[in-house]
Amino acid sequence: MQELQIPNGYFQLWNMYLIEQGLDFYTLEFLAPYRDDLKHVLQLPIDTQSPFSFFYSILQLTREQLDCPQLTIEMAKRIRPEHFGVLGYMATRSNSVAEALQYIVRFSRLVIDGADAIPLQMYQQGNEIWLSWQFLDEKYALLHEMTMAAMVHLAKQIFPDQPQLLNIQMAHRPQMAQYHYQKFYGCEVLFDQPRYAYVMGVDSLTMKSVLADPSLMQLLLKQAEEAIALKPHYESVLQQIHTAVAEYLRLHAVAPKIDQIADELHVSTRTLQRQLQQLESSFKAVLESERMKRCEQLLQHNTSLTEIAMRLGYSDQSALARAYKAYSGQTLLQRKQQLKDQSEP
């Protein structure tokens, strides 16, 4: 499975932040092991992509060593269209908010791509417009924060009146003091939500861009379509099943049945069983894998073992402990102590 790829523009934003602080990454001791790789990435075209894991390592180190937990927001304040590549220019040259959002949904792979990339959805609920996507894994929290903040800040440059943000929803826990979020977004920011989402007023869709350019849009659209056509096709059926089971565990705090997941994926139970068989897997294997991942997340939240067992559909704590030992090779108590030691300074 190909690793998630993120825009090289994000590395450029990171470097811009350092330069504006009077810092040179090549002289920072904590970045010594990464200097050559950073030099290479920063020389690549801004609209190409690099592995997320590398970006995550650099981002975490910089946040910690420079004592800047709000780094993602500081980087987002420096966003320009080119940092999102052709999609950034398409959003800038769109005629309206509605058109820009349609292109973002359609061509999001040009910004973030890989087998773990989650498709965006746009839909209306009453007088609200939702641009949302599913939770995948807490390890992508900083990436979601970076992308969400960058999109909002770029929108402020494109639409002078600014789309009316009703709230921002994040599926993970806060990564910095909450006042940083409130100050940046200027609206309510909710955490530990079922999905990631921008929620805005329906009237925002008709807002016009001061930079709209229909002629240039045709050229950009052709370029985007050609770039998407060159993207690899991922065998994502198994990942979709895993994601649906993970979402069900998070939202309902109970283990799903196979027919419930089939309904979520809009296929018959028989079709889902056949797909899993063709992929040399089974619903039992998928469910057990996602239960254990969810168990890890709940352990990190200091949830009691009894409650974890209940949320994951085990008969009792002992049944959970046996399943975890069989899956990971260590006991729940050992893992809980491990997590406790890691969280202590």
Rank of each mutant, 00 (worst) to 15 (best):
E3P: 06
Y10T: 00
F11N: 04
Y17D: 11
Y17Q: 09
L18H: 10
E20C: 03
Y26I: 04
Y34D: 15
R35A: 13
R35Y: 13
P45H: 04
Q49M: 11
S50F: 04
S57N: 10
S57Q: 13
L59C: 09
C68Q: 15
R78L: 10
R80Y: 09
G85R: 04
S94E: 04
A98Y: 05
Y103L: 13
I104S: 10
V111M: 11
I118N: 02
P119R: 04
Q125E: 08
I129T: 12
W130I: 07
S132F: 07
W133Y: 13
D137E: 14
A150T: 14
M151A: 09
L154D: 08
P160Y: 10
D161F: 07
N167L: 08
Q169K: 14
H172Q: 05
Y179P: 00
F184P: 08
F184K: 05
E188D: 15
Q193Y: 09
R195N: 11
A197T: 10
A197R: 13
M200R: 01
D203H: 14
L220E: 05
Q223F: 01
H233V: 15
L238D: 07
Y248I: 02
L251K: 10
L251I: 12
P256Y: 03
S268Y: 01
R270W: 00
T271D: 06
A285I: 01
E288N: 11
E296G: 08
L298C: 05
T306M: 05
T306D: 11
I308D: 03
R311S: 05
Y314A: 00
S315M: 06
R322K: 13
A323D: 07
K325I: 01
K325F: 07
Q330C: 13
L333M: 09
S343I: 12
